[in-house]
Design a protein around this nucleic acid. Structure first.
Lengths: 185, 185
DNA sequence: GTAATATGTCACATATTTGAGACATATTTC
DNA sequence: GAAATATGTCTCAAATATGTGACATATTAC
């Protein structure tokens, strides 16, 4: 049975992803608890948002590290990271939304992304593929990074909306990302 | 000189794109007018949002139709539609956000998309390319449709954030979209 | 079954946002 | 330059959102 705190965070992530100013009443309702209870767990809106950020980052980073370590080859590493992110669903989409308006070099400064070095691992994988001329040299790494996130988000939304079955969304995402960066396998 | 009404709508689109509940004070500030003035032009928040929806749809649809009519070939049509959407910038991104949570078949029912038949034109172009076996047959049209929107949005955000120069974002978007759907030219 | 803990309902004070009247000031029109 | 129009500032009432105490009720632990 999921804890009340976890239920609230899950609901908050879902609500705040699309509307950062959604009412706490709405979040509580989405969580299936009363607003009074929500306030018992979180001091205020800011506390709730920070908690969501922290937990979602930890969760996504963890999944991505596992995916990274799941195979020695760079291509499978990237593929598994893509799948791991899609599996995170709303979590990943929430994190993406938070950071959407930051540019690539700003992100490099943020501690959140250095904590587990997910981004630098990902960065090095792409660099490796570029060096080996296995992907399109015209595309910059910032572009590829943003595209990676967008395709994941597309897969998450396609599944959530009912347009695409879960397995299909994973496969389509991989096919599309590969093609988009001109990856030669 | 841009009219006050237009300034407010532009500002609202920018604000509401990322936060549908942003305060009207914020929108007014973004527009460079007082909130009192904003209230003179728009009855209430709902009126403002509806106006934004209508105007952005008209603007985007118009640009897309022009792009569609700019060349007889299906591939250049699609390319130009992609570029036209990127050129719309915040307008397109706003429209995309509004409809993000609708699935493909729901969108087919909405009059907004039937008004100028942009979507059906786009749909038929992709269908044509599928039939001619010029794109990857594994990918479904709903997936391709959503991906098209995501890549456009990626280009818009990449440019806005400063990661990618304007011309580069256009070119990267086209290269990536082509590759993603396996388009053979 | 009892005690401890968790949650919901209710009420309320406070904070924030909204909508609009009144009037001053700025800008545009002729 | 005068008149008309547009906008800003200020104020205030109403609406909405937030945070929390009190107490009842439900659930869990022993």
């Amino acid at each position: 049975m999921e804890s009340t705190r976890a239920k609230i965070i899950t609901a908050a992530v879902r609500c705040f992803r699309d509307n950062p100013s959604d009412t706490l009443e709405k979040v509580a309702e989405e969580a299936g608890v009363s607003r009074r209870t929500l306030h018992r767990y979180f001091e205020n809106r800011e506390d709730l948002i920070e908690s969501c950020k922290n937990e979602m980052l930890v969760s996504c980073n963890k999944a991505m590290i596992l995916a990274y370590e799941s195979d020695p080859g760079p291509i499978i590493k990237i593929r598994n990271m893509l799948f791991a992110a899609i599996e995170q669903g709303a979590n990943y989409a929430f994190v993406k939304r938070i950071y959407e308006r930051s540019n690539f070099s700003d992100l490099e400064m943020k501690k959140e992304f250095e904590s587990d070095d997910v981004k630098s691992k990902w960065f090095n994988l792409i660099k490796e593929l570029q060096k080996a001329e296995r992907i399109n040299p015209e595309l910059t790494i910032p572009w590829i990074f943003n595209l990676f996130g967008s395709i994941i988000e597309t897969a998450i939304y396609a599944f959530e909306s009912g347009d695409v079955a879960k397995n299909d969304s994973r496969n389509f995402a991989w096919i599309s990302f590969k093609g988009a960066i001109g990856l030669k396998e």
